[in-house]
């Protein structure tokens, strides 16, 4: 029997996914409502002058042009916006994201992203959990920036082709790491309480740039490999 090279977390079906999650249900309902709208509009247009009573036509129009579209608006938005947080979605911009996703799933890699992935420290939405600020405005901000990503993708820029190192828009904030780590015992007590000693530096920001006085990545980085490192690896392999 051929052994899969994929990490075990990817190969086993998760125990609760038999009936699908809220995103899957929203997606299925959106599909059903979309098809229903098309059927009702075509049906109404075709039979309006033939057999249908005016009151039925009015009811069908109210349903297909007001009620169902508003349901699609909410369900579709929920389904697509939540679906876009998944790693597969980020990875769908193939060239640009190959380096990062491949490294994250690489069993030999020791980057932060790979370590988090191997240990299943982040259960789902691995990219999104570290690259969008938590809360509603973080999501909104990330979606806005997503449109800039789309522009790069449509214009086939060097970044989108994966030929140019992707850069962060601004300094990576420690709050994104501390959102999960700050309350844990291991974080507070590890390394002779080093995090407690440097708490002011970890929580403080530089006045001129807004960057952390001491970034988590200073000691724990890098989060991802650099493009130049990968290219040298590839040339060495060849």
């Amino acid at each position: 029997m051929e052994q899969s090279s994929a990490p075990i977390g990817l190969t086993l079906e998760k125990p609760f996914e038999g009936r699908g999650g809220a995103v899957e249900w929203a997606g299925s309902l959106t599909t059903a409502l979309g098809v229903l709208i098309l059927i009702i509009i075509i049906f109404t247009a075709f039979f309006e002058r033939r057999h249908l009573r005016p009151s039925i036509v009015s009811s069908l129009r109210f349903t297909s042009l007001c009620v169902l579209p508003l349901l699609i608006l909410f369900l579709g938005s929920f389904s697509t916006l939540e679906g876009s947080k998944r790693t597969e979605f980020c990875h769908s911009c193939h060239s640009a994201m190959d380096l990062y996703v491949d490294d994250m799933q690489d069993k030999e890699s020791t980057t932060l992203a790979a370590m988090h992935y191997k240990k299943r420290l982040i259960q789902t939405d691995e990219c999104y959990s570290c690259h969008a600020d938590y809360g509603v405005w973080g999501t909104a901000d990330a979606k806005g920036r997503g449109l800039i990503h789309l522009y790069y993708w449509v214009t086939n820029s060097a970044t989108a082709r994966g030929e140019q190192q992707i850069k962060l828009y601004s300094s990576y904030q420690n709050s994104l790491c501390l959102y999960c780590h700050s309350g844990s015992q291991s974080f507070l007590e590890s390394g002779k309480q080093v995090h407690r000693k440097f708490a002011d530096a970890l929580l403080g920001k530089k006045a001129n740039t807004g960057a952390p006085i001491m970034a988590c990545g200073t000691c724990h980085g890098p989060a991802h490999p650099k493009l130049a490192d990968k290219k040298s690896q590839q040339s060495n392999a060849q």
Binding site: T31, I37, F89, S92
Partner: peptide, 21 residues
């Protein structure tokens, strides 16, 4: 509404940066 329904179907069935946008 027909245009919106078709785009919603497309986005839900095949979620990519283009269909989401």
């Amino acid at each position: 509404i027909v245009l919106a329904a078709l785009l919603a179907l497309l986005a839900v069935q095949n979620l990519t940066p283009i269909t989401l946008s």
